[in-house]
Measured scan of single mutants.
Amino acid sequence: KEQQNAFYEILHLPNLTEEQRNGFIQSLKDDPSVSKEILAEAKKLNDAQA
């Protein structure tokens, strides 16, 4: 469930490039146990690119 939530949120971050988004999603698939950390990174990058 946590992985699904992170997946959904990353898909809807407006400021990520397609490449960045795909990278985060691939990381989620590779290691779902760190989905919280991956989501935090994605949000940080999204904010930095706002």
Rank of each mutant, 00 (worst) to 15 (best):
K36C: 06
H12A: 13
A50E: 08
R21N: 00
A42N: 00
A42H: 00
P32G: 06
P32L: 09
F7L: 13
Q49F: 08
A50W: 11
K43P: 00
S33K: 10
Q3G: 04
E2D: 12
E41N: 13
Q26V: 03
N46S: 12
Y8P: 03
L45Y: 05
E9Q: 15
S35G: 04
L11R: 11
S27P: 01
K43V: 07
Q20K: 01
N15A: 07
L39P: 00
A6Y: 09
D47P: 01
I25Q: 03
S33Y: 12
N46Y: 01
A50L: 08
K43C: 03
Q3F: 14
P32Y: 08
F24I: 02
A6R: 06
N46F: 01
R21S: 03
E41W: 15
K29F: 08
L16T: 00
A48W: 06
Q3K: 05
Q49C: 03
E2N: 05
E19L: 11
H12W: 07
E2L: 05
Q26C: 10
L13Q: 02
N15Y: 12
I10N: 01
K44M: 12
K36Q: 07
E37K: 14
L28P: 00
D47S: 14
K44R: 05
S35A: 10
A42K: 00
I25W: 05
T17R: 05
K44T: 03
E2H: 05
Q49L: 10
L11E: 10
E2Q: 05
D30V: 15
Y8V: 08
Y8D: 08
T17Q: 04
E2I: 05
L11G: 06
L13Y: 07
N22S: 13
N22H: 08
P14W: 14
Q3N: 14
P14F: 15
S35F: 15
N22I: 11
P32V: 06
N5E: 13
L39W: 05
D31F: 13
K36W: 14
K29W: 13
V34S: 09
S27T: 07
F7D: 04
A6S: 09
I38V: 10
A48E: 08
E37L: 15
I10C: 01
E19C: 06
P32F: 09
K29D: 06
L39F: 03
L16G: 00
Y8W: 07
D31H: 13
V34Y: 11
D47G: 11
L13V: 01
T17N: 10
A6Q: 05
L11P: 01
N22W: 15
L28D: 00
P14A: 12
L11Y: 14
T17L: 05
L16Y: 00
G23T: 15
